[in-house]
Design a protein around this nucleic acid. Structure first.
Lengths: 353, 353
DNA sequence: GCGACCATTTAGATCGATCTAATTCGGTTG
DNA sequence: CAACCGAATTAGATCGATCTAAATGGTCGC
């Protein structure tokens, strides 16, 4: 069942055609393409002219079969619509593109079985390596299996095994920055708003929050899960400002949560940056456009993508390198959504709580 | 210069190994893989067992060389960080993935020469077809050349040639919806805020705005270009509310512009949905999360992506189909950012202007 | 004049699948 | 009993490049 038209496969210009036209052998023409220094300038120009003349198109498929290299990298992302992953992807693409490689992009939708299927598909396509942001609940054995297959692999953002390269963020440091900032402004009742699937980055942020609160002598018990859909997050806002868990500030799992809570607090008639403080995480482009502007811990997804891509290129070069870790330091961007605690909202201290 | 380790290419399990192990010929094993009905159930199970036993991985590269089909589609996008394109991509991916195909994603960054290079690269990789959102200022000849190459092509969102499939949006209708809505609310001085590179969708939106205003007897002269960076858009807000071009409502080129202007108007102390009306375009996920909620013309990027992918699959099936157009009707989502004109801002009518 | 040596070029095998054109074989038919 | 059939299987050519190992041709030293 040939999907393509017959005409396509016919009269295709091959290297042999080029070689004949230029009056050299197939082997020489091949050397010219690969920019080998072995050929004389004279024949090189002759062959290049022939290629242009005949409209020759290099056939990577054939080359890959023989040379076992496809100039193709598989990128597995759990989510395409979150701007964070998009920026990550942009970073990956920038570096790989510059290296003449091409990205095969797939979306695991955070489903492990789907991820498994996609990884097989990539192997079948003969990718030279894979950049993987593991789906939630990915088991360590997956990565071990891939190492066994000798398929170069870089984990990004989430980590399931230490036997393999990883590019990510120092989430604990980011949380410390957020908490220290709010504590410095006088806040004592600081909540943490979470959502999304559970994975290493999720856990690291929670742990980071707890440690940072503990270090400040504050109660880290106020950790609340909010819905995943952005519109629904707004409706969860009352959880933070009323009842026993009332707080004066929230550290958000990411900017999506911050945006949602910001909307919800607005609906409650509260003014962010006056009645309540909000700190986002990731600092995606919209944080700067929010009003009031969102204080956020920048994690530089594009830079992480670039780092991951570079790790992979290095590994392709030297497959026997020991596993490396690239842990980016985040950076707090202070804007208008976080301000001094003025006590006007009423509060709950660790002792009184 | 072999990039890959020696060990990788050695001891790879091939179809021949599988065949030998199962006690059949290479040809039969090939038939089993391709799920041909020609083989008996008995040998099928035998071969499948052998594949599992040996850990066989199908080599698409080799198959493609012979069969001239790669199950690979090139997708060329001008911008990776705009959420609109991401949703589009998600739609494309959903359909192609279900068809067992894989996306090779590249980013033209709206540069024609880069786009040219990338298209060549895709051809070299032997993609079965291409979904292209043409970079600004792409010439018609590009598409014609691709048709000549017999490389199945679908244009998406932007159109440079009628000789080729296209999936997009009825921008004129969307503009009419936006303008009619605002006019119905009593607004007479309606501006249009533009940005970004110039392409067919850009032009169609402008034309649509003009026609819709004309049809209502309103002056469509107030078309203003704002910066491209979202943070800078906010600073352009004064252009709309002061000076001779003062208006009471703005139709925005897309939601990014709307978000930026919303921030800028906030900075000027104005309240959207009371002092001023704003209508966005595209209705990406954040529109629902803005406060006040953004009235926006939904263009359903994910559906467009799905449509484009389906057009391409159809064309792979029947290369000689006449070029088709899939023009989605947008849909106005009325929320809080647009309200009755209360005359409190002062105004300028067509006659008075 | 002969071998050594360098730079350049090349013939032919090869990668791992698919495709074509048989071949095999048990069973039926005239 | 030969001819024929359909279902199942297969040998061998093939896709378009790369790689290996060897050939070619010219220059140089001795």
């Amino acid at each position: 069942m040939p999907i393509l038209s017959e005409s396509r496969k016919k009269n295709r210009v091959t290297l042999l055609d080029v070689a004949r036209y230029a009056g050299v052998s197939r082997a020489t023409a091949s050397l010219v393409i690969r920019k080998s220094p072995l050929v004389s300038t004279e024949t090189r120009t002759k062959v290049e002219a022939a290629m242009k003349e005949l409209g020759y198109v290099y056939n990577m498929g054939a080359a890959r079969l023989r040379a076992d290299r496809s100039l193709t990298i598989g990128v597995v992302i759990p989510n395409l619509v979150n701007p964070f992953f998009t920026e990550l992807l942009a970073g990956i693409d920038r570096i790989l593109d510059a290296a003449g490689m091409v990205v095969i992009l797939v979306n695991s939708r955070d489903l492990v079985t789907r991820q498994e299927m996609l990884l097989t598909r990539m192997r079948e396509h003969g990718v030279d390596g894979i950049i993987l942001c593991p789906a939630a609940e990915t088991e360590m054995s997956l990565v071990e299996r891939m190492v066994e297959w000798e398929l170069p692999l870089v984990q990004v953002l989430r980590r399931v095994s230490d036997d393999c390269d990883y590019a990510g963020v120092d989430y604990a440091l980011g949380m410390r920055q957020a908490v220290d900032h709010l504590a410095g402004l006088g806040h004592r009742d600081i909540a943490f708003a979470l959502h999304g699937p559970v994975h290493s980055a999720y856990q690291e942020r929670i742990d980071g929050f707890r440690e940072a609160m503990d270090a400040r002598g504050l109660d880290p018990g106020n950790i609340i899960r909010v819905p995943n859909q952005i519109a629904a997050i707004a409706e969860a806002a009352p959880l933070f400002v009323s009842g026993t868990s009332r707080s004066s500030a929230v550290v958000c799992f990411n900017d999506v949560v911050a945006l949602g809570l910001s909307a919800g607090l607005y609906d409650l008639g509260m003014t962010i940056g006056r009645d309540f403080s909000l700190v986002g995480f990731d600092d995606v482009a919209d944080a700067e456009a929010m009003r009031p502007r969102l204080t956020s811990v920048a994690t530089f997804p594009e830079a992480i993508g670039e780092g991951a891509a570079r790790l992979l290129l290095d590994r392709l070069d030297k497959p026997d390198l020991a596993p490396r870790k690239l842990v980016n330091a985040p950076q707090l961007h202070i804007r208008q959504s976080s301000t001094f605690w003025q006590g006007s909202v009423g509060g709950r201290t660790k002792n009184a709580g």
